[in-house]
């Protein structure tokens, strides 16, 4: 069975016919030549395939392309490129928050989602319960960043650099807040 769909990928409208079984990840990688999102586990357990779907970070391996018809998709390649990197991409390079690089585009997209979610006041499992219950806005401490980025596994063990990179970007993203207490 096939479906005709349109996606806006990194700002560019794309029309394609997909097998209904094709995931958003495979549609991007195998049909639209966008290999920024990576296939690390294909079961939502590693985060390498993270993209922003209508602005929210998701694992593209568990989203059917047909179900994403009409959506706007942003991959790491759409956030920035080598010539004009996104501040997060710059921060990852600066803090060496990557080694083999395979999880990195997913980490970058996830981090972009984290910044937006924090700006929207979303709590996390690292938010102190009383703050959570009072509805107060979270501050992106290192503990908050670690928890929020835990859906992105990195086998090389670049977590320390990743947390530093996201922390830098968070402080730039929300200059009024001090953030990052450790």
């Amino acid at each position: 069975m096939e479906a005709d769909i349109t996606l806006t990928v990194d700002g560019r409208p794309r029309a394609l016919r997909v097998d209904t079984r094709t995931t958003l990840l495979d549609a991007l990688r195998e049909h639209l030549d966008n290999t920024a999102p990576k296939k690390g586990c294909d079961h939502g357990q590693c985060g390498s395939c993270t993209v922003l779907l209508s602005g929210r970070r998701v694992v593209s391996c568990l989203i059917l392309a047909a179900a994403a018809d009409g959506a706007e998709v942003t991959t790491a390649a759409g956030l920035g490129d080598e010539a004009a990197p996104h501040p997060l991409q710059q921060a990852f390079v600066e803090h060496d928050g990557l080694q083999c690089g395979y999880c990195t585009p997913g980490q970058v997209c996830s981090a972009a989602g984290v910044l937006d979610e924090a700006a929207a006041g979303w709590p996390s499992a690292a938010t102190p319960p009383d703050d959570l219950a009072e509805g107060s806005a979270p501050v992106l401490t290192d503990a908050e960043i670690r928890e929020r980025m835990s859906g992105n596994l990195c086998r090389c063990g670049a977590y320390a650099g990743i947390v530093a990179a996201v922390g830098d970007a968070a402080r730039a993203h929300a200059p009024a807040e001090s953030g990052g207490n450790r």
Binding site: G44, G47, T50, R57, V58, V59, L62, S110, G113, V114, E117, P123, S124, A125, T127, P129, L132, A133, E134, G135, R148, M149, S150, G151, N152
Partner: peptide, 19 residues
Amino acid sequence: RTRYPVLSQALLSGASGQL
């Protein structure tokens, strides 16, 4: 968050941000 923080906590302890 304010009426049922236990539900927020449970949700936030599950899976990952993307999921």
